[in-house]
C-alpha cells in the first residue's frame, strides 16, 4: 500500500529522516515509536506530501504522492491542529468535509452518530469554534474527520496524547474494529508503548531518523520496547 524508497530529509545539513526502504502492506497496522525528535512527524508529513523530501519518494498504491494527488481521495489523516480549520465550529467543519466526500446530510448524521460516545456531548451543536476547544476535543474532531469517507489508509500522529483515559480506550477499540472490518491500513505514531502494541501488529522504532527495529507484535513486544527505551 505504502512504499518508501531511499527517503531522506535534511534541514541545513542535518538529516532528520533517512529510510532506505519500507513497505506497509494493505490492511497492515503500522506503529511508529521513537523519542522526541526521532523524525516520526516529519516522516508522516512526507507520506502526506506536506514536506518535500530532500531525496527519495513515498509511493502510495505505487504512485508517488508528490506526483499525483490520487492518494488524497483514499487517505484520512490527522497530524496536528493545522489540519483543522480552527475558526469553524466542529459542526461546520464536518459539514464542509461531508461536502468534500459527497455525503448527504443523512450520511453525515449516520457517520457522526457512531461517535456520540467519543464526543461525550462536548463537541457537536456547542457553538464553539474549534480553536476554543480543549486540546483533547480538538484531537477528537481531527480523528473523526480523518475517518470520514471510508479511507483505505489512515495516518495518525500521537492519537492517544491529550485524550482522557476513557477516550483512549474507546479509540483503541475503534481502531481495532476498523482494522478487522474494513481492512484499513493504519500508520500510527505514539509515545504510549502500551496502546501502540495493542493496536498495531507491526512496530517500527525510529531513532535519529533511522529505523532501528522492525518487529511483528507478539506477547513480548511491550517488554522488548520497554527494554529498548530503558537502555538508552
Amino acid at each position: 500500500m505504502i512504499e518508501v524508497n531511499e527517503l531522506s530529509k535534511k534541514y541545513s545539513g542535518v538529516e532528520v529522516v533517512n529510510i532506505p526502504s519500507l513497505k506497509v502492506a494493505v490492511g497492515e497496522s503500522f506503529g511508529l515509536v521513537g523519542n522526541n525528535g526521532a523524525g516520526k512527524t516529519t516522516f508522516f508529513r512526507m507520506i502526506l506530501d506536506l514536506i518535500r523530501p530532500s531525496s527519495g519518494n513515498v509511493l502510495s498504491k505505487e504512485v508517488a504522492v508528490n506526483s499525483s494527488e490520487d492518494w488524497k481521495f483514499y487517505t484520512g489523516s490527522f497530524l496536528d491542529e493545522s489540519f483543522l480549520i480552527d475558526y469553524l465550529t466542529p459542526d461546520e467543519y464536518f459539514d464542509f468535509l461531508a461536502s468534500l466526500h459527497g455525503y448527504s446530510q443523512g450520511d453525515l448524521n449516520d457517520f457522526l452518530s457512531q461517535f456520540e460516545d467519543l464526543f461525550n456531548d462536548e463537541i457537536l451543536g456547542k457553538k464553539k469554534y474549534i480553536r476554543d476547544l480543549s486540546k483533547g476535543n480538538q484531537k477528537k474532531v481531527g480523528i473523526v474527520a480523518a475517518l470520514m469517507g471510508n479511507p483505505e489508509v489512515l495516518v495518525l500522529d500521537e492519537p492517544f496524547a491529550n485524550l482522557d483515559p476513557t477516550t483512549q480506550i474507546r479509540l483503541k477499540v475503534l481502531l481495532r474494529e476498523l482494522k478487522e472490518k474494513h481492512q484499513l491500513t493504519m500508520l500510527i505514531s505514539s509515545h504510549d508503548l502500551n496502546h501502540v502494541t495493542e493496536v498495531c501488529e507491526r512496530i517500527v522504532i525510529l531513532e535519529k531518523g533511522q529505523i532501528q527495529k522492525d518487529i511483528q507484535t507478539s506477547e513480548t513486544t511491550l517488554q522488548d520496547l520497554e527494554e529498548y527505551f530503558t537502555v538508552q
Partner: peptide, 11 residues
C-alpha cells in the same frame, strides 16, 4: 490553504 492540503481536494 494549509488545513486543506490533506483533504480530498485538488491543490
Amino acid at each position: 490553504i494549509e488545513p486543506y492540503l490533506h483533504l480530498p481536494l485538488k491543490k
